[in-house]
Design a protein around this nucleic acid. Structure first.
Lengths: 336, 336
DNA sequence: CTGAAAGCGCTTACAG
DNA sequence: CTGAAAGCGCTTACAG
């Protein structure tokens, strides 16, 4: 194991000097160019990598960032994977290690949290939607000096922590507008949280079309089965509709599949949109028109915000802008 | 920030004693029960958590495990997510931090590897299938004293490192047998690596049925489009077939969807099986019969093996046993 | 131009 | 029964 001291001994200088040359932080020091070169050369030859534990210990850091992740998105959407992927690779580039914990519910989360966590990490990034009580625990940490950044949280339970996520309302608005522009006039809306309807309504308003509240159908979750169930209810109701705005790709896939199965037809399906632009969207019988959830950008923003905060800045929450991705589910072009 | 020294000062004892009481490693020491209780009580009150950096530094460890992950499985299968999820939560329970790096190709991987990595981690878990050269780099690390454990590697490029993965041949065998038992007699096989055919052939042999080599169709990858493409070729060939064993849920979904689209029929599809038992399998128009890839078990085995190795044991590679999960794609029960 | 010393928060022989 | 001391591998005033 190659250390500063080892290199110093080899070259007959002090480890102090080696440290300064390698870190580039010379302080009041001015080294002769020749020893500088000698040190750098030897360090490179030995692929010297400073022991980050020792560095962090000395500098009063932990060298560790806590990444607490709730499932984001519906199964098959790969959103959690994408988030962890981007975030962990970024933290790695900053030289920080990870305390990575996946939690499924409030109990898991509470198990992960204790005041002593400040002895373990330099900051916390929490992804996913916890209960309001969790938010207040996190806010306490933050106030006590442990920087906390959130991502994909439900804005109203945030307790003033910086949060990054896609603009949900705009997602619904983009999808709704698109379907209205395709000629739909009686759109159903599968939604999970009532708040999500703002975008659906806004799109109607902007185009001067009046939506029919009897076509608002509340879903339990964002999953495939939830889409099937909503579709079941919609078809059973007998109410006329000519398109559907759903809250996730999983829901849209479930809804479409139920329709195919009940009607036995592979054409003239109701125009429909998903959310997330996940792998689900491209592996449906009919590829799904969807809106992005900007997961990579969210991860990047959250990590940057954490380092900003550690550097003394006050990062601001942000809503990222979704993009519409048009595929056959809404255009009904014929099969190849 | 609460430290040993802080507690020691409060109680008027040495930090040495506090350390021994809290760690439970008393050595030659024998403490009075009353001071022991006092120390434990105060530590609990303050939620004292020892600084793991300092512990690791002292004990000559890094307190960090490298987790290098290639994508496992097809997009939408969530296998990478599952693997990272289980592995990271386990490592966390052992108190180790993570150096988590996702790599997409050989270049990424090489960027992540340097001899100096021994200064950063106590061990390496590598998931996914790298090139043979990567395997030999890893084997070098292992020989030089950095324990390396593999998961989901292609066995022939392993260079004697312990590896954990599901038994691919048995996966194909289970699926093939199941289809033969459903009455199929002319099975097509969509396969990626030639080696995977062993199970397909074994199943035929065990049931005394002769397969037709003109129904072996090689796929580029495990993805949805690959399944579509293989199905395209199969249908174009005009050769008779009555069932399909594919190499992934993505392939199976793609193949089925192409069939529905080309025939316009929603019944009498060719009986078909996938692999991975992923979310894709349950969000198809027809739920897919599949075989599990035992990702959780693989992750657990890999992590356990790493700790075994660090404890001086010699962990042995293992092939985990897949399970068949029967759904409609192979039974063709009617739609609800 | 360079080095000795102190210290980050622990652990573990060693000494009393 | 308990503590002083040394040391893990670094960094950073401070002194020459």
């Amino acid at each position: 194991m190659v250390t500063l001291k080892g290199i110093a001994k080899e070259l007959g200088v002090s480890h102090t000097l080696v440290s300064r040359v390698i870190s580039g932080r010379m302080g009041t020091t001015r080294v002769s160019e020749s020893t500088r070169q000698a040190i750098l050369k030897r360090a490179k030859e030995l692929d010297f990598q400073p022991n980050r534990l020792a560095m962090a210990l000395q500098e009063g850091r932990k060298g560790v960032v806590g990444l607490f992740l709730h499932r984001i998105g519906t199964p098959g959407s790969e959103m959690s994977h994408l988030f962890a992927n981007i975030a962990s690779n970024m933290l790695d580039e900053y030289g920080d290690r990870l305390m990575l914990r996946y939690f499924r519910n409030k109990d898991d989360f509470e198990k992960f949290c204790s005041p002593g966590i400040k002895n373990q990490v330099d900051g916390l990034i929490v992804g996913g939607v916890p209960h309001p009580e969790m938010a207040s625990i996190l806010a306490d940490y933050d106030r006590s000096g442990l920087p906390v950044i959130c991502a994909f949280h439900n804005v109203d339970i945030l307790a003033n922590l910086p949060n990054f996520q896609v603009d949900h309302s705009m997602q619904a608005c983009l999808a709704t507008k698109h379907l209205l522009e395709q000629g739909c006039r009686r759109l159903a809306h599968f939604y999970v949280m009532p708040g999500r309807q703002a975008g659906f309504l806004q799109a109607h308003e902007e185009l001067g079309i009046t939506p029919d509240p009897s076509l608002y159908i509340q879903a339990k979750q964002y999953h495939y089965e939830d889409g099937r169930e909503c579709m079941q209810r919609l078809m059973d109701s007998g109410i006329q509709y000519d398109g559907i705005v759903t809250d996730s790709d999983g829901q849209a896939a479930g809804a479409l599949n139920l329709w195919f199965q009940r009607t036995g037809r592979l054409s003239d399906w109701p125009r429909i949109t998903g959310v997330d632009n996940s792998p689900i969207a491209t592996s449906c019988l009919v590829p799904l028109t969807s809106v992005t959830s900007e997961v990579e950008e969210t991860a990047r923003a959250a990590v940057m915000a954490l380092y900003d905060k550690r550097a003394g800045k006050e990062p601001q929450s942000a809503l990222l802008t979704p993009k519409l991705v048009v595929r056959e589910s809404s255009t009904r072009s014929q099969f190849d």
